[in-house]
Computed example of a mutant assay.
Amino acid sequence: MPLRTASTVTFFYALGYPIGNMAVHAMSPMAVLAFRFGLAGAILGVWALVSKAGWPTGRKLAHVAVAGLLMQAVQFCALYYAIQHGAPAVLCAVVIAMNPVATGVLAAAFLRDRLTPGRVVALVLGVAAVLAACASRLVAEGGVDAAVLLLLIALVGIAAGGVYQQRFCADVDFRASTAVQNAVAFVPALVLALTTPFVVHDATKAVFAVAGVVLLNATLGVSLYVRAINLHGASAVAMLFCLIPAVAGVLSWLMLGEHVDIGVAAGLVLGALACWLNARSGRKRSGENGQDDPARHRGRQHRVDAVHDAAVAR
Rank of each mutant, 00 (worst) to 15 (best):
S177Y: 07
A206M: 08
V199A: 13
V180T: 01
G212Q: 02
L190E: 01
L216T: 04
K205F: 14
V184H: 12
A170M: 03
T195H: 04
V210Y: 14
V187E: 11
V213W: 10
T178S: 14
T195E: 01
A211S: 15
Q181A: 07
H201F: 10
A176L: 05
V184D: 09
A185E: 06
A203I: 02
A179E: 05
V199H: 15
F168S: 01
H201I: 00
P188E: 01
L194I: 04
F186A: 06
A179M: 06
V207M: 04
T204L: 07
F208H: 00
A185C: 02
A193C: 13
F174H: 10
V191S: 03
A203N: 04
T204C: 02
F174Q: 01
V184Y: 07
V200Q: 13
L190F: 15
V210A: 07
T204G: 15
F186I: 00
L190A: 13
T204A: 15
A183N: 03
V184A: 10
V210E: 01
S177W: 00
G212C: 01
R175E: 13
A211W: 11
A170P: 06
V207F: 15
D173W: 15
G212K: 03
A185R: 08
V210Q: 04
D171L: 06
A179N: 01
L215R: 01
D171P: 13
F198S: 09
A185W: 08
L215I: 11
T196V: 04
A189P: 11
